[in-house]
Nucleic acid binder design. Sequence first.
DNA 1: GTCTCAAAACTGGACAGGCCAATTATAATA
DNA 2: TATTATAATTGGCCTGTCCAGTTTTGAGAC
Lengths: 255, 255
Amino acid sequence: MESVPQKLPRLYQQVAEKLVTLIESGEYTIGMRLPAERDLAAMFKVSRPTIREAVIALELESYVEVRMGSGVYVIEHSKGKSRFSDKDVGPFELTEARALFEGEAAALAATMITEAELEELAETLDEMACENNVDTETHEAADKKFHMIIARATNNSAISSVIEELWDERESSELTHRMYEKVRNSGVKPSVEEHREVYEALKARDPQAARELMRAHLMRVIDSILEATEVEAVEAARHQVTKNRERFSKTRTIS
Amino acid sequence: MESVPQKLPRLYQQVAEKLVTLIESGEYTIGMRLPAERDLAAMFKVSRPTIREAVIALELESYVEVRMGSGVYVIEHSKGKSRFSDKDVGPFELTEARALFEGEAAALAATMITEAELEELAETLDEMACENNVDTETHEAADKKFHMIIARATNNSAISSVIEELWDERESSELTHRMYEKVRNSGVKPSVEEHREVYEALKARDPQAARELMRAHLMRVIDSILEATEVEAVEAARHQVTKNRERFSKTRTIS
DNA sequence: GTCTCAAAACTGGACAGGCCAATTATAATA
DNA sequence: TATTATAATTGGCCTGTCCAGTTTTGAGAC
């Protein structure tokens, strides 16, 4: 038989993967207790030591928490790889950082971007404009693609890594994710227009314009978040919003 | 006995920690094979399954690699937490990213820095100037402290996290670390002067000046790295250096 | 009927010993 | 000397067992 996989992973890894799949598919939800090790062993047709090894693997990747004498419980998976996981970076801070960093990245990209990359950007813009009213997921994918093309156009993997990290971060924070969702729903079309302006600046190879437009774009996102916040915020939170307005107006003026 | 620790960690974790200690202490160096699982079990007075669990833990943290039928081998430990670990970010890219991002951070910090933070900066400057000719470790600590005070003065944890990440990254890359070492040895005094200029700009609350001076400081670091590279580079590498010069001259002119 | 608390059932923690398969070292052979 | 077959080593995995916390249960007290 040549269909036999020549190298199969270690057993505990296979089991661990299956367990992760079950957890991420919602079979076992957060807080829920997994079946006993003995039962899991029977389910997967493996021995208990193997189950233990798989559980340890999940534990080290903080998928589960094992409580002596009680069981192993699914916990919130903080992906670990996020540097902000323990810092609770809010949507404002995150977007402000993006405004500064991506602004600089756009300026640098303007001096180095290739024709091929410009072409890619144009295509992505069409995706965004065309699939405007389709599902948000597609739009978001195109959005990320646009920003990442620019980041990579800097030819600096440190820069693109940081920008991708900041982008991904918004997914891992529940609050931030909700905020961005609200912003997306409030008005996407102006966003497409803003992206196009950035594209034009890059095409013209104008660093200053690219920086300013990218920064302006993300600053508008902050504004949108502020508005969304105001809508849903209770009266008690309002003075904080005002403080934020003051605070981010400073960012805007330091250029 | 009341000296009994109320909660001792799981056995495999204790074993894993001991193994990590042994590895980091140089008892087992990179490429070396660890004793057989059976021997380790005897050494630590635990059962073999426990050893296996500990080895799996080390494996998941990429301390070791286990080769079926051969043994478990110590590999280079890439701390995993670095987002760049798999991307091989060179010293030039890293420093360019720092120049852009820390420049912006300095500009933002100039608008928000407190008197207390300025005072801290002044103290750190004294440390750097005073312990100039002492061990490099102290100097480097003061250097990082200086940059991180500014990063934190932005009052934006996303920004300070990114900057700290970039700083730490230079430790994890052997090449980058060597480069920075060379730069440190070549001339520290001008570096102190450059830091002082940044400090003055922050004290004057001048965003533009703070950005320019911080950027200039890090650009000079790139120059130093280039020089260090030239000294040790073989002839074949020289054209790459020239390309780098061209490339980073662009960064300098986009402001 | 309700509450208390101890016993039993359940669950993870750890161990012993064994067999198999892949690898490596060794010795026998061409 | 080079090659190949054999033996020793090593990780992979299993069965079975006992122990120590945790949870549930149920009997007895009120």
